[in-house]
């Protein structure tokens, strides 16, 4: 009976992961398709990657996206971490509900609404849309994601550690730099990576809030996809998947802090 459960569990896991990864794997495989027809296999080839790198427009958009992602990621990480600290440390302050709401809302709010709202704001305040407005829009979107990650880390944080630091002579700023920050660093780093990914990925906020000189990669891909499936987009998608895969791996490595590794080795030692 126990075995039935194990079999069922494995079947569910296999089916689930097949559903999650199947489409992505297909895109990757077909990016190496030699044929011009997407669904007809014409042997292995990397010709579409060559075509891709020769596409100056696409490369320029990729550069814009990357720059915007890093800039907005940095802003979102700083503001999100501060927001998480504020929510965790200040207990109940006036308008806390509004503050928490404004942090968490962008996580689920339809992006068309947020994109439109920001655009109207920029137009009303007479700001020329372009790279800066793009960064601001993405930072606003990602801030909440960073805040949630950091807040979760802070929730498991033993407050007496900060008290101990201050007991040993560290002022509030030093205690934060020497104790709190190193301990929440994995969450902050993961938050940054997530913010970068969100920005790289976003089509809608970018479409509303960027200017003609700063077309992002998703905007470029979107306009191509509308025209139909091409092998070149397969190649582009594969590169994006590779990029995200690498940064995820990086995040996983950061998450596996030396502490976790040591715990593991200590556990093994105890069992031996």
């Amino acid at each position: 009976m126990k075995r039935d459960w194990t079999v069922a569990r494995l079947a569910v896991l296999c089916a689930g992961f097949a559903f999650l990864y199947g489409p992505i794997v297909l895109v990757v495989i077909y990016s190496f398709n030699g044929s011009r027809l997407v669904t007809v296999w014409g042997g292995w080839s990397t010709r579409w990657y060559g075509a891709l790198f020769a596409n100056r427009q696409l490369m320029a958009s990729a550069a814009t996206s990357l720059e915007a992602a890093i800039a907005s990621g940095a802003i979102a990480t700083i503001l999100g971490t501060l927001a998480a600290l504020a929510l965790d440390r200040f207990g109940r302050f006036r308008s806390r509900g509004l503050f928490a709401g404004a942090i968490y809302a962008p996580l689920v709010l339809p992006e068309v609404v947020m994109g439109l709202a920001l655009l109207l704001f920029f137009v009303a305040s007479g700001v020329e849309r372009g790279f800066v407005t793009l960064v601001v829009a993405h930072a606003t979107l990602s801030l909440g994601f960073v805040a949630i990650l950091v807040r979760a880390r802070l929730a498991g944080f033993d407050r007496s550690l900060e008290e101990a630091a201050s007991d040993l002579g560290a002022g509030p700023a030093t205690a934060f730099m020497r104790v709190t920050l190193p301990l929440i660093a994995p969450a902050v780093a993961t938050g940054f990576l997530l913010a970068v990914t969100l920005s790289l990925d976003d089509l809608i906020l970018a479409s509303f809030n960027t200017g003609p000189g700063s077309t992002t990669l998703p905007m470029r891909i979107y306009s191509e996809v509308r025209l139909g499936v091409t092998p070149q987009i397969n190649a582009m998608s594969t590169l994006l998947i590779g990029f995200v895969g690498t940064s995820l791996l990086l995040a996983a490595l950061i998450g596996r802090s030396p502490r976790g590794q040591l715990e593991g080795s200590a556990g093994r030692g105890a069992r031996d």
Binding site: L161, A164, L168, P172, P182, L183
Partner: peptide, 20 residues
């Protein structure tokens, strides 16, 4: 005086050893 300026030290019940 804040704790970091007091000539007093404390051993915490949970020890509060810095894990990092």
């Amino acid at each position: 005086t804040p704790p970091h300026r007091r000539p007093v030290n404390m051993m915490f019940q949970t020890y509060a050893l810095f894990p990092h």
